[in-house]
Amino acid sequence: MREGNDHRVTGRPLHYNRWVVVFCFGVLVFLGLFYYATQKIQYVWRWNRTPIYFAYQEEIHVTSTIDGEVSAITVEGDKARITVTGNGEEETYTTPKQDVRVSKGEFISPGDTLATYKKWKAGLLVIGLWITLKISVLATIIGVIIGILSGLMRISENPALRWSAVVYVELIRGSPLMVQILIWYFVLGTLINDLLIANGWGQIPALWYGVASLACFAGAYVSEIVRAGIQSIHRGQTEAARSLGMTYGQSMRHIILPQALRRILPPLAGQFISLVKDSSLLGIIAIRELTKAAREAVSASLQPFEIYILLGLLYLVLTFSLSMYVQYLERRMATS
């Protein structure tokens, strides 16, 4: 008895911990070999150059627009006001005071720098991340709406509704997303934008065609998830609701969908995690989402290893936080 207990350190047998060590060792060996290989091809790692792709300081030059003399420089708090007068004109420029490059009485021409200051700007990867987030959120919302509607149509007794849903789902699931994106942008997009222009309205930006393609793609899968979720609710639930006088819509809204939603939350989450990852294809229609932004950063920096590794990690952060959030929702729903 005593001996058996001695083998336990954290309530688990000793050999368990041994394999944990083996795992960690394996990870380290893999990373070490990878690094060794990059050294073999003389890749120079420059992680210190990557932060500028998240945020950087841009130097902004405040330039004069007129010819004349600096007539006054007044400092108010951390701002400076430079007034230029000449040829009957007067212009005042407000700028942070740290780097004023002219003094009172100086003559200047249009285009001369009066002052400079530095401003934080979002780097390429942050811009890309923002676009990816925006597209994913919009496509998720629209995808859920399309999915619920077509899922309900799919189980309708009306053949026009049911067959529309079947055709939609089969069309979308039967072709690659890449092809659908190309069709949305280069076929439907051209058609719609040309029609809009012909009628004197503005064009719809590429981003919206990207959102539409992802939403329709996800919608088809959500449709099947919703259908399965609704059909998994026992028929007696509908019968009980209807026998109380509820309409089809009321029984769906109050009885069936709330129960179905709990069951379909995990597959639904998987679908939206896929959607975030699939948005990386939208670069081909010139939407500057995360992957496209990373490719631009690579062209500019010639640091593909660092930036592509960062790119992968950024997607991981997005999808991992999404799955954490869904787990939280599931727990909350289970207790309510």
Binding site: H234, G236, Q237, E239, A240, A241, R242, S243, L244, G245, I255, P258, Q259, R262
Partner: peptide, 16 residues
């Protein structure tokens, strides 16, 4: 149906 109450063999209460 609102005027006709029904009780089922398997109760069919709303579990949520």
């Amino acid at each position: 149906r609102a005027e006709v109450g029904m009780v089922f063999q398997s109760f069919n209460l709303f579990p949520h």
